[in-house]
Design a protein around this nucleic acid. Sequence first.
DNA 1: ATCCGTTTCAATCGATCGTTTGAATCGGTT
DNA 2: AACCGATTCAAACGATCGATTGAAACGGAT
Lengths: 222, 222
Amino acid sequence: MSGRDDVPGKRRAAQGTRERLIEAAVRLFGERGIEATSLRALTEAARSNIAAVNYHFGSKEGLLRAVVDRTMRLANNERSRRLDELESAPEPPTVAALVRAFVEPGADLLEGHGPDVARFIGRMISEPDPRVRQLFADQVDPVEGRYLAALSRALPEVDDDGIRFAYTSMLGLLSLHQSGAFATVEWPQLRGPASGTGRSDDADRERLVAFVTAGMLAAHPR
Amino acid sequence: MSGRDDVPGKRRAAQGTRERLIEAAVRLFGERGIEATSLRALTEAARSNIAAVNYHFGSKEGLLRAVVDRTMRLANNERSRRLDELESAPEPPTVAALVRAFVEPGADLLEGHGPDVARFIGRMISEPDPRVRQLFADQVDPVEGRYLAALSRALPEVDDDGIRFAYTSMLGLLSLHQSGAFATVEWPQLRGPASGTGRSDDADRERLVAFVTAGMLAAHPR
DNA sequence: ATCCGTTTCAATCGATCGTTTGAATCGGTT
DNA sequence: AACCGATTCAAACGATCGATTGAAACGGAT
């Protein structure tokens, strides 16, 4: 029992490896999936040792927890800030504004921290393992409530099931595009989704906002 | 080297095991994911033996290939049929009709063959392993070209990238909802997406059609 | 220079994975 | 009843997984 998780006390040169482990985990978990990434490949990529994972994080799941916390906090804080902004305005936010406030913090991660963080988050949404899913849900949780309430206010004629559908669709669509799930396969019939490497990120973001906004507005109350 | 894959010749009582293996694979691959499902758990669920997988399918990947072929063929044939129907009509199909022709065969699988098949297909779309993804892409391939062409005809003002985005969004959204990715987690803020077990499948399907159709029509050529 | 808590690392553990093997069993044919 | 290809099964194989151990290396404080 020599490892510790949360000590803010004295970590001298340790911060280096701890950091490199998280960075490598974000990248490899996002690229190959969580279960498919072995600690050996991960620690090798981080120029470290297997035992370092257990020392710094206790286990692979501990490392995953740290990675989830690190990455999601970035997007969630920004979303929370933009919600504050919208709710302090005189008139209630439109659906388009709400969608933008949700999608753009995710997309900005892609530009700010490279595609690794965004891809990792995108991957989380479709992870089968219930423990991983719960980890994800716990992290999304706090912002989610505010968003659903705001969305429900912007779409007063839509019932709760409709709001839930709209929100999950937005979240899922954002995650799918962020995960690069559509870019990793040869779609022979399609012009390259990854035509070149520069991809049309901005255009895709606008397309996503337009698509989701229109989809939400088309919801019918029944 | 005693196993064979494609022999239509004489399989006497063998058909039973082969069938049970595929059924168990569809269910477990869909529930837990492909890599996370061990052949031991799978063959036990099928009341069979580990070696039977290698005998009938050569390997785990061979079994997966058979499962993909079996499940996707169902939806693809129906989609192809509905495309024939739409294209033989006097007037060109609307976007709404095209969306319906794509979404409903997927959703019908859910009702016809239980949630297992639909969930399995849904899971495929977000599988990280490139070999699995290629397997999926190869199977979707034939119908995909016709769909993209029809979609492009129905949305003449949208460029190729926009068509690609619309199609992948529809495919991804359908898969996500089919995979039950949103139903397997406790969303504390949401009324149960899986409220009870009977879920509102029909209502969700209509919501999906409306959402995707509106999203496509909102695409702007730029 | 010595000490001590912190951090790294090579080596190893038991468990589980997909695969392979060789013998037993089943059903129809001769 | 003797035979034979098709199928099933228990057992074992090598590889790899996450986790653990004990000793070495590091770095400031004394």
